[in-house]
Simulated scan of single mutants.
Amino acid sequence: MRTVSAAETAPTTYPWAVHAEGLRVRAGRHLAVDGLDLALGTGVHGLLGPNGAGKTTLMRALATVLKPAGGRLTLLGEAVDGRADLRRVRRGLGYLPQQFGFYPRFTVREFVEYMAWLKEMPKTAVPGAAQRAIERVGLAAKAGARMKTLSGGMLRRAGIAQAIVNDPAVLLLDEPTVGLDPEQRLDFRELLRDLGVDSCLLVSTHLVEDVVAACTDVVLVNEGRLVYQGTPDDLIARGGAGDPGDSPAERGYSALLRRHRAETDR
């Protein structure tokens, strides 16, 4: 019997969980992501930008739903292109789109277990993993309820549960706080901090305050291009009293967008 070294049993690590160089992605005929450079590692990254900035298209590309039209995209150390075998990469991903489908008559537990099966989790691991995911999003009391009976906020939490059931190395959440009340949003921020300890988490949202409160890193995009990447404190420092916004974070966000647009129009 051979002795197994610590290096062989250690989890695989990558310089960047997500790495894009000159990434171009189409949404239909429109080039929604245009020459984007991005590097994301472990932590909670907030994705901000106005409507039509390319956030959802970028999320779909990172989730391997859309193929890049140009540039390079590497996920978990593997290049994503038209020739790639994406099954291994997808096992390490978790994804919550803005709108997700489900069988209305499924219970919450059945829905999360079914999604775990689709992610090719070992059969014996599925029940326990589903229960843990349901508990983490605060739906333990509703585990036996049918999906069609859930409120909008509960549906979003069930969607988050399916996204995290496989303990993904890269977790992508597109507008996850839609339908959550203020108390649920506070709980969700705490969940984000917990998830970001050992995974790469990208959260797309219009709520700048959620990003500042829960994220270690801010990514701001506009017209498919990177405008800014840095800490929430630096984002706040970019704004001034004359910039639009009801908070220092919103003023920093507005200031960065205004300067980017001015430079683009030159």
Rank of each mutant, 00 (worst) to 15 (best):
D210F: 08
R132G: 09
E8C: 10
N222K: 08
R87D: 04
A161T: 01
A262K: 13
A140Q: 13
L207V: 11
R189T: 05
R185S: 03
R87Q: 06
G43V: 08
L192G: 06
L38S: 04
R24C: 15
S199F: 00
A17R: 14
A61D: 00
D234R: 09
Q131Y: 04
V212F: 06
Y253L: 09
V25K: 15
A262V: 08
N222F: 05
S247Y: 08
A133L: 04
G22P: 10
A79H: 14
S254N: 13
G46I: 10
P104E: 13
A169I: 02
S204P: 10
S247W: 07
A39F: 00
E21S: 14
T216G: 15
A158Q: 00
K55Y: 00
T231H: 05
K55T: 00
D243P: 03
Y14H: 15
A125H: 03
E113L: 03
R146Y: 06
Q184D: 12
L48C: 14
D233K: 12
D167R: 13
Y95G: 04
Y14R: 08
A6V: 13
N166C: 06
L257Y: 09
V80M: 07
G43F: 06
W16G: 02
T205R: 11
L75Q: 04
A27H: 09
S254K: 14
V44R: 11
L62D: 01
H19T: 08
E175L: 10
H206V: 11
L191R: 01
R225L: 05
G70Q: 13
L40E: 02
S254L: 09
W16N: 10
L173A: 02
L76E: 00
W117M: 07
Q131A: 15
T13Q: 04
S254H: 14
V211K: 05
Y103D: 01
R261M: 13
A6Y: 11
K67E: 10
P15Q: 12
R2Y: 11
P232E: 00
Y103T: 08
A10L: 01
G43Q: 10
P11K: 12
A116H: 09
R251N: 03
P11N: 01
A6E: 14
E263N: 10
A161E: 02
D243H: 03
L155H: 11
L256T: 12
D210P: 11
R26A: 11
K142L: 07
T149L: 04
S204C: 12
T124F: 07
L235I: 03
Q99G: 02
Q184T: 00
E21G: 04
A20H: 05
E175T: 01
Q229D: 11
K123A: 15
F100Y: 07
G43A: 05
E223S: 15
P232L: 03
D217V: 01
D34M: 10
L40N: 06
L86F: 05
P127Y: 07
M147H: 11
A6S: 15
R29K: 14
R146V: 03
A116G: 13
Y253S: 02
A143M: 04
A84N: 11
L31F: 05
P232D: 02
L62C: 07
G196I: 03
G152F: 10
L171Y: 00
V178S: 15
R88C: 08
S151C: 09
P104G: 08
M1G: 15
G71T: 14
V211D: 03
L139A: 01
T107L: 01
V89T: 12
R24M: 14
